[in-house]
């Protein structure tokens, strides 16, 4: 088994004005692993993903994909590295002005320059993989329920068979059954593609279903990392307080008095 992590972060820092969001994040994600990053609201989870994706430029540190520091790459190389990543956004982020099939095939059309007819056929095939009928392809995103939108967003993320998949709060806003369905689809997709995945969530059930590995981020730092199986009995006071949702503990919510 290779020892080079698929994704390696060292000392990643990011501030917005005087607010320090990432404070020297170190994280290794091995190939084929599903890493779940948990943490409270505003702990820097989404910023972390956006830094790896290149949507936000970190102030310091290094981000390596397959041993290559993406922050040192020129623009075309970074765009090529980004093309290997699929992303499921928290609210789906489907393009309102395009029908569902074109949303799913957007990356294929952009990257591979395949014909529209072939792209539509591929989109229908991928929609089937996330449990949606081909006829859904001709609908508009606004015509879909929240769960269906998430599935379409998942289909879009996996359509170009990416090596790396990111999931930002994949079950937020869904009922428990639909949440379980989406988690199941995510696990299936990651296994079928053999991708490396990072999911960020504060849904503990979802975290245990999706993740092989888990890490907790607090105040911009990774404070714990281990197998996802041990998430609920980590022995780490911060993780235990978070996973069990206790008011009392080392994590103090900043409430305005």
């Amino acid at each position: 088994m290779t020892t080079v992590p698929k994704i390696r972060l060292r000392g990643v820092c990011k501030s917005f004005g005087d607010k320090l969001v990432l404070d020297g994040v170190d994280l290794d994600v091995m190939p084929g692993t599903s890493m779940v990053v948990i943490g409270g609201s505003g702990s820097g989870k989404s910023v972390l993903l956006k830094c790896i994706l290149g949507l936000i430029e970190p102030d310091a540190g290094s981000i390596e994909i397959d041993g290559q520091n993406v922050l040192a790459m020129d623009r075309p190389a970074r765009e090529a590295a980004r093309a290997r990543i699929g992303m499921l956004f928290q609210n789906g982020a489907l393009f309102d002005s395009l029908p569902v099939w074109e949303n799913v095939a957007f990356g294929l059309l952009a990257q591979r320059k395949i014909a529209r007819a072939a792209a539509k056929a591929k989109a229908v095939e991928v929609l089937g993989q996330v449990g949606l009928a081909g006829s859904v392809g001709d609908l508009w995103p606004a015509e879909l329920s929240g769960g269906m939108q998430k599935r379409v967003a998942l289909a879009r993320a996996i359509a170009a068979t990416p090596e790396i998949l990111f999931f930002d709060e994949p079950t937020t806003g869904l009922d428990p059954i639909m949440g379980a369905v989406i988690d199941g689809l995510i696990v299936d997709c990651v296994k079928r593609l053999g991708s490396t995945a990072i999911a960020i969530t504060h849904d503990m059930l979802s975290a245990r279903r999706i993740g092989d590995q888990a890490a907790m981020i607090h105040k911009g730092r990774i404070v714990w990392q281990s197998d996802a199986y041990g998430l609920m009995e980590s022995g780490n006071p911060m993780v235990d307080q978070f996973t069990h949702g206790r008011r009392e503990g080392p994590i103090q919510m900043e409430l305005r008095k």
Binding site: L53, F89, A93, F95, G107
Partner: peptide
Amino acid sequence: MRVTDQVDALSTLS
């Protein structure tokens, strides 16, 4: 598109 992450989604789709 900006506030619903669709602009970021474009970037992730090459």
